[in-house]
Amino acid sequence: MTAPNPLKTPDLEFKSLLFLVLAATALFLLIVWPFFGAVCWAVFIAIVFWPLHQRLLRGSQGRPNMAAAASLTIILLIVILPLALVTASITQEASLLVAKMRSGEVDFGAYFQRAMQALPAWIRAILERLGVGDLGVLQQRALASLGGNGQALTARAFSIGQVTLDFVVAFFVMLYILYFFFRDGGAIAQSIARSIPLRDDHTHRLLTHFVTVVRATVKGNIVVALVQGTLGGLAFLVLGVQGPLLWGAVMALFSLLPAVGAALVWAPVAAYFFFTGELVAAIGLALWGVVAIGLVDNFLRPRLVGRDTRMPDWLILVATLGGLVVFGLNGFVIGPVIAAVFLVSWQMLAAARQQDVAAPAAREPD
């Protein structure tokens, strides 16, 4: 009788396969990491627009290539092209504002000094101790850092071009991946579900929650950002603030932070109007910020984000902030997704433990 081969035991073979899978996965993540943002956004956009793609797939009589191309075209026309046009307008307005600052037409230092002079003496003393008593010096330093001499701009030209090239490459990689996610998304999802070493009900719950959180976070945060940025930009336009489109975009970006984001932009402007004696503008902007912009955050965000994710507001805020710190701009989606997976995984573990405890008790005789 032939002795069993110790290198062919099922346990050793399984451990070897597991080691191979983990090593290959680590190496794959290493080579994909430079395009991490592109892959993430391809996943996010595919999840958000998947219902639209399904309708296009039915309309194309089940031809996946045509449906994927149609979905990608619609996204380019209704999302990416308008975003590119708005970005170009914001860039132009930012350049114009910087030019006005250099020429002295816009002097934030003078505005700040006017507000400082309207403050009580004890507040001015505190601000001067903190080193923020003279914004004129800070403005001059900011202008110098924006490229006051040609040599600095020439030295930075290569790095700026490299960043632009990286963005363009990542953008087209994202579009390329997105096409295949639309075309093969169903098969990819089924393959992932089969590969996850969990019970079928746990796998279904985990993937369903992941999709729900991505859709709610992307749609909710982007809608809230657009609405708050538009409302803030309109208010600044009416009040004659320089660069209303630029400040509206900044407000939209800050509004990714729940509860406090947009106020970081409009509140200092309202305070400036108040301390410089423009009480009507100050009160009007404060009321607009609290009532209009604030209501968007207090009522629209929970209905678009919190209701579907079933996460408390404080956890969404902490997860968003942490995601932005760790992953950059991508973190406003990745942070809440990680928090949601954390919650649902612990809930599944607690439910499994309760079932294990209840099972022996049910088998005990009366």
Results as ranks from 00 to 15, higher is better:
A3Y: 15
L7R: 06
T9F: 02
T9D: 12
E13R: 11
S16A: 13
F19W: 10
A23H: 00
A24E: 05
T25F: 11
A26W: 03
L27N: 02
F36Y: 14
G37D: 05
G37R: 00
F44I: 00
I45Q: 04
I47R: 00
I47T: 06
I47A: 08
V48H: 01
Q54R: 13
G59M: 02
G62T: 05
G62K: 04
G62E: 02
M66H: 05
L77R: 04
V79T: 05
I80N: 03
I80F: 08
L81Y: 10
V86S: 08
Y111L: 10
R114Y: 12
L119Q: 07
A125V: 09
L130N: 13
G136R: 05
V137Q: 12
R141H: 14
A142W: 13
A142K: 05
N149T: 11
N149M: 07
G150S: 15
A152M: 13
T154W: 11
T154Q: 09
F158R: 11
I160W: 04
Q162S: 10
V168C: 07
L175K: 01
Y176H: 11
I177L: 11
L178R: 03
R199S: 14
H202Y: 14
A216N: 01
V218M: 11
N221E: 09
Q228N: 14
Q228A: 13
G232V: 08
L234F: 05
A235D: 08
A235V: 06
L237Q: 11
V238K: 13
L246F: 15
L253A: 10
L256Q: 00
P258E: 00
G261D: 04
G261A: 04
V269H: 10
A271R: 03
L279W: 08
I283R: 01
G284E: 03
A292V: 15
L295G: 12
V296Q: 02
V296I: 10
D297G: 12
D297S: 12
N298I: 08
V305E: 00
G306H: 07
G306K: 04
D313N: 10
V318A: 15
V326W: 10
N330S: 12
V333Q: 01
I334Y: 02
V337L: 00
V341G: 01
A350G: 05
A351M: 08
R353M: 07
A358Y: 11
